[in-house]
């Protein structure tokens, strides 16, 4: 009987596949990335290496010596409390990340993880960050999402384009998004200033583009302002998906239409905005196998790191960059995803 290798589907469920099936899925995943992103294929050597990583023995695999990379986080310091239900303050969480988990950096973030909410409590959030900065050695970020959706009525000041668009009220929907960008940039830059004032090392604009191209534009414009007004505060822009969804469609940054941009083009705008790190994201398809997903991911990510002038950190969290979509992540495929991202995708961090 032909040997079958253990791997998983994108939703985390277990599956056994033959060499032929794995290689076919690697090819198909790569082709999907090429079709969508108009990027170069992986070399034969790289696809073979990817196959080796997928099938190598051991539950957890690691990178080759010397290829260790650093890690940044999104809402990291809050996850012990929110995800595990352990009531620990965020400054203590940061210390746990440093002295117990061996993290290279972490961010302080509010459990209501968006800048609109944080604006109202920014100085209080800054106080927590200030306490954490006193007690930790590693770089600390403040992090949240631009999350433009929060600017819509009834919670926010502008009309809800998610309602207007399906109703065909296009002009109003576009205007609402443009208005929301202005509000978001103001809020984000205000929060950034509070964090810069207490000594933050970094500022995380996480899941930028989650509400579409206007959301991504807000992150770029905010980053531009922060790096100009508070150059001591370094910005990381993390993406929301493999392409920027055209909720508006006509918005530009640096004369480039933002909608539809894949990671290798997203990173050039992020660089232009002055960010120090780009957090690249490729979505995991739950219905496809890990070999298919990781081949697709690496094809996109390698195209991104090839052109990037700044460090690229691949988001290695639930449901992205080959990591399955499940709450408790299986270390078998997660460690394989990390190894492939670092050794073939050439990322500078996770």
């Amino acid at each position: 009987m032909e040997k079958k290798y253990f791997t998983r589907m994108g939703d985390g469920s277990m599956v056994y596949m033959t060499e032929e099936e794995i290689k076919a899925d690697i090819q198909l995943g790569m082709e999907d990335a090429i079709l969508r992103g108009k990027v170069d294929p992986l070399t034969e050597e790289e696809t073979q290496k990817l196959y080796d990583i997928v099938t190598m023995s051991g539950i957890i695999v690691g990178v080759e010596p010397g290829m260790q990379v650093v890690s940044s986080n999104d809402s990291g310091s809050d996850k012990i409390s929110t995800k595990c239900g352990i009531p620990v303050t965020r400054d203590v969480n940061a210390m746990i990340h440093e002295r117990v988990l061996g993290a290279d950096s972490v961010d302080i973030g509010n459990s209501d993880y968006n800048y609109k909410t944080v604006k109202g409590i920014a100085k209080r959030e800054a106080t927590i960050l200030k306490q954490a900065l006193r007690n930790t050695t590693m770089p600390l970020f403040y992090g949240a999402m631009p999350n433009l959706g929060f600017y819509t009525k009834p919670d926010g000041p502008v009309e809800n384009w998610a309602v207007l668009l399906p109703e065909g009220r296009i002009k109003e929907a576009l205007q609402a998004q443009e208005d929301a960008v202005v509000h978001a940039v103001n809020d984000i830059t205000y929060v950034a200033k509070q964090m810069a004032d207490v000594g933050a090392d970094g500022f995380q604009l996480d899941t930028s583009g989650a509400a579409g191209d206007a959301d991504f534009l807000a992150a770029l414009l905010a980053c531009e302002k922060i790096t100009k007004n508070n150059p001591e505060l370094k910005v990381e822009i993390g993406a929301a998906g493999e392409f920027v969804l055209g909720m508006h469609g006509k918005l530009k940054y640096d004369d480039q239409i933002i909608a539809g941009l894949y990671p290798h083009k997203q990173v050039k705008l992020v660089e232009k905005a002055g960010a120090s790190i780009f957090g690249a994201v490729v979505n995991t398809n739950c219905n496809m196998s890990f070999p298919w997903n990781i081949a697709r991911v690496i094809t996109f990510i390698k195209a991104c790191t090839d052109v990037a002038q700044i460090p690229v950190h691949a988001n290695a969290g639930m449901g992205v960059n080959g990591i399955p979509m499940c709450e408790n992540l299986p270390s078998d495929v997660s460690s394989r995803a990390d190894k492939a991202l670092i050794e073939i995708g050439k990322v500078d961090g996770l």
Binding site: L35, R36, L165, P166, G168, I170, A173, L174, G212, D213, F243, V244, L245, G246, M247, H248, G249, K250, A259, G260, L261, Y262
Partner: peptide, 12 residues
């Protein structure tokens, strides 16, 4: 699905 078309274009 490819990201080549924006939502308003899809709606039009």
């Amino acid at each position: 699905d490819l990201g080549s078309l924006s939502l308003p274009e899809l709606i039009y």
